[in-house]
Write a protein that binds this DNA or RNA. Structure first.
Lengths: 109, 109
DNA sequence: TACTCTTCCATAGTCTAACTATGCATCGAA
DNA sequence: TTCGATGCATAGTTAGACTATGGAAGAGTA
């Protein structure tokens, strides 16, 4: 998940999508999920993840609460809000729109 | 071609690809070509384009020379170097690799 | 004539967000 | 008793796309 690899903002999209599917997860779990689903292509650094979650909290796309994991550890869990669900739709279609445009350019040139 | 839409570095890829197909073009022409091929989804701003071309010159991916356009205007033409051709391959497969990873995450979550 | 639009180049400075580095804390296993 | 994994978080750096701005030259037009 490097600056020179992925679109800025894509991390938001990936987090939103992951939460939409999985319901509620804590940060570390979100990172591992994305990493696994990408078959280890996308490495989600903690220094990217937590700031991203902070931004998303501020924007009201997610809400958070403290709880305990299955292994009895303290962790902060995140859940999508209605605004987050709407944002997911926006970002998903935006992503699709731009990526197919780029693909078009690459294939046409 | 906005920061919140496209991957940083993608502009390089699009320019490289465009030059690879079209042979040699001047800056303004590169911008219009990308824009047209994307069906106006990607707006290539001059404040993005020219700095990108400078970077690419520095990295030796393109070389430039002054000439005149069909309309008899002074313009700077760009052509791919061997290094640029190699870089194009790298960026193209990189792009493909990451985009399919993102798609995988979005579809799997 | 003056005007606006398009073509063409270029740079200075701003801003976003992913990054590195770092710090802290707990648990289980070696 | 050290190490790895789990878990959170922030400070500061960096790349690069952006806005704003400057210039020049030609074509058309009022």
């Amino acid at each position: 998940m490097r600056r020179d690899e992925i679109p800025p903002g894509t991390l938001h999209l990936l987090i939103l999508k992951t939460l939409a599917r999985r319901g509620e997860l804590h940060g570390y779990e979100i990172a591992r999920t994305i990493q696994q689903n990408s078959e280890d292509v996308l490495q989600v650094e903690e220094g990217s993840l937590y700031p991203a979650l902070q931004r998303m909290l501020l924007k009201g796309w997610v809400k958070a609460y403290w709880g305990t994991t299955a292994e009895n550890r303290r962790a902060r869990f995140y859940r999508l809000t209605a605004a987050g669900r709407k944002q997911l739709q926006v970002e998903e279609s935006q992503f699709e729109r731009v990526m197919s445009a780029i693909t078009r350019v690459i294939q046409t040139a």
